[in-house]
Each structure stands twice: as structure tokens, then as C-alpha cells.
Design a protein around this nucleic acid. Structure first.
Length: 169
DNA sequence: ACCCCGATCGTA
DNA sequence: ACGATCGGGGTT
């Protein structure tokens, strides 16, 4: 039960996204190994919500690292992110997939699916994920091999290979 | 006040 | 290939 500290998140977003692979996402007693992440990096990244500046929704990304950023997408689903880097540099890592170990190795592939399964909503936006194990990420035992690709579901920023997926599930 | 569109997903 | 569904953010 080694909770990842704020210093883990206060680093380049690409590094955080890569190193989150294989770590354990914990949310209210539920646990899953992180299998897929994406990096969204600053106001120069056209796919980042903060590209158009600081707004009410993106406010959390302009704050310190180690906080959750949860937003509603397509009027139906929620996406879970973790804020990275320093204050006033808006960046975050999207959690796109986890593998549950508890009942039957359920694979939750998709940011909307995993939030629905875990019960994560906008209510959980802006939470400090470095203090309480009920909402946190635990250190990994081993770094799994992974591949890179363009990010999913975006129309801008497709030249950046900022999606990271653990190999073979 | 109005309009467009989105870091998705299940169904056809 | 497409519709569901709604809030954010820009525009009038």
C-alpha cells in the first residue's frame, strides 16, 4: 500500500502516463491495474481541454499535481484524469483502461466504461489522490512493457503518440 | 439566448 | 455507420 506521492505527478506528463501503467488504481475499495493511459499536455496541445485557456471546467488542471480531473463527455460518460506537472501548467493523464483482479479479471477497456463500473462521476472532480487510499494510485511492483500510439477519439494533435498501452493485456 | 461539438460506447 | 444525450464555451 504505497500511495504514489505528489512528487510522482509533478513530473513531465509523458513520464507520468508511462509510469502509471501497471500501478493499481484504488477507488472506494475497488482496485485495478492501469493498462492504458493518455497524456494531455498544456495549452500548446490542441487536444488538451486547457488549450483554449483557463475556464471553470479546466480550472483543476491549472492547479497543483496529484488531483483528479473528472468531466462529462458526450452527455453520458465520465472520464478520469490525474493532474500532472506544476501549478499554472495545465496537463493531465487520462486513465483509459484497468484490469480488475478481484472477482474475475474483468477488463475495463475505455475511459467511460471504467468510470461507470467504478461509480466515478463529476462529484469526484478535484480530489486529492495522494492522501487517502480510498481514492489513490498505488506503486507498482514491475514496469510492464507497453506500446505507443496516437490518442483515441480526437481530431487535433494526432501527430503526437501520447497513448500508452500495456502489451498483451 | 443560441449553436456546435466533443479525450464514448453500444447497437445496427 | 450511427444515435444517445448534455454541458462547456464561443458567438449573437
Amino acid at each position: 500500500m504505497m500511495i504514489l506521492a505528489r512528487s510522482f505527478y509533478e513530473r513531465p506528463t509523458i513520464v507520468v502516463a508511462q509510469e502509471l501503467l501497471g500501478c493499481t488504481l484504488v477507488f472506494q475499495g475497488q482496485k485495478g491495474l492501469i493498462t492504458e493511459t493518455e497524456a494531455y499536455i498544456g495549452q500548446d496541445d490542441p487536444a488538451c481541454h486547457a488549450a483554449k485557456g483557463r475556464t471553470q471546467r479546466t480550472d483543476i488542471m491549472f492547479g497543483p499535481a496529484g488531483f483528479s480531473y473528472v468531466y462529462l463527455i458526450y452527455g453520458m460518460y465520465h472520464c478520469l484524469n490525474f493532474v500532472t506537472e506544476g501549478a499554472d501548467f495545465p496537463a493531465a493523464v487520462l486513465i483509459r483502461g484497468i484490469k480488475m483482479s478481484k472477482p474475475d479479471a474483468l477488463l475495463l477497456d475505455g475511459p467511460g466504461k471504467l468510470c461507470k463500473a467504478l461509480g466515478i462521476t463529476r462529484e469526484h472532480n478535484g480530489w486529492d489522490i495522494t492522501q487517502d487510499e480510498s481514492f489513490s494510485v498505488l506503486k507498482k511492483d514491475r514496469a510492464p512493457p507497453y506500446v505507443c500510439s496516437p490518442r483515441i477519439g480526437i481530431k487535433k494533435g494526432l501527430d503526437k503518440y501520447w497513448r500508452f498501452v500495456v502489451q498483451s493485456g
